[in-house]
Amino acid sequence: MKVTVVAGNPKPGSRTLDAATRLAEAVSGRAPDSVIDVITLGPGLLGWGDPDVAAAVKTVAGSDLVVFASPTFKATYTGVLKLFLDQFATGDGLKDVVAVPLMLGAGPGHALAPDLLLKPVLVELGATTPAPGLYLIDSTYTEDTRIADYTRRWAPALKAVLA
């Protein structure tokens, strides 16, 4: 099983990246094979044909399980993540990929954002999303039990789909 983390935070090395990596490790039982901190792809995201962006797209499309993560910006996922997702073909760009949408925010007001906003885009691109998304409070995710609770409840379903 190839596991990848995609973090769409405008700040490199963000809490979003950390939370996504923690979730991927908890669900799969090991460190991810690949980590894509989207902001590091730079201006290549603004067009088509950039070799680094193409390599990142190929990595994601060739993965079995991908955690797609974003902070909550203006009640939705970031433009940086949107630019990356635009690189995938509609319908089958994420074919055979099991995706987990993850979003972080300052408070519980946007707790449905992963399912209402990020998950539909992943499905439109062909991903399978058998579990609900996860929303974490960015100031407490390292101390609370939300990742462990999610993993206990949903890792068996994710692994069953991957089998």
Rank of each mutant, 00 (worst) to 15 (best):
G13N: 13
G62H: 05
V67Y: 08
T151N: 04
V66C: 06
L117K: 10
K119P: 02
A56V: 02
T16W: 00
L94D: 05
S14I: 12
G105S: 07
Y141V: 11
P32V: 00
V6F: 08
E143H: 12
G62C: 06
V66H: 03
K74I: 12
G126K: 09
D92M: 02
D86L: 11
L46N: 11
K95A: 15
T40Q: 13
Y135L: 02
P32N: 06
P71I: 02
G29W: 04
L162C: 01
G107W: 10
V67T: 07
L23K: 11
T128V: 12
P114H: 05
A69G: 11
K2P: 14
F88D: 07
R22D: 12
K74H: 11
V6H: 00
T76L: 03
T40L: 08
K11E: 12
L125D: 09
D18L: 13
L116F: 03
A157F: 02
Q87R: 03
R153Y: 10
G42T: 04
V38C: 05
R146W: 06
L102E: 00
K159A: 11
L83E: 14
A26K: 05
T129V: 15
F68N: 04
L158T: 04
A56M: 07
D37S: 10
T21G: 13
P114G: 02
K74L: 13
S28A: 15
A113H: 09
D149E: 15
G79S: 13
L17D: 03
L85N: 07
A69F: 08
V100C: 03
S70C: 02
T78M: 06
G133T: 05
T4K: 00
A26T: 02
K119D: 02
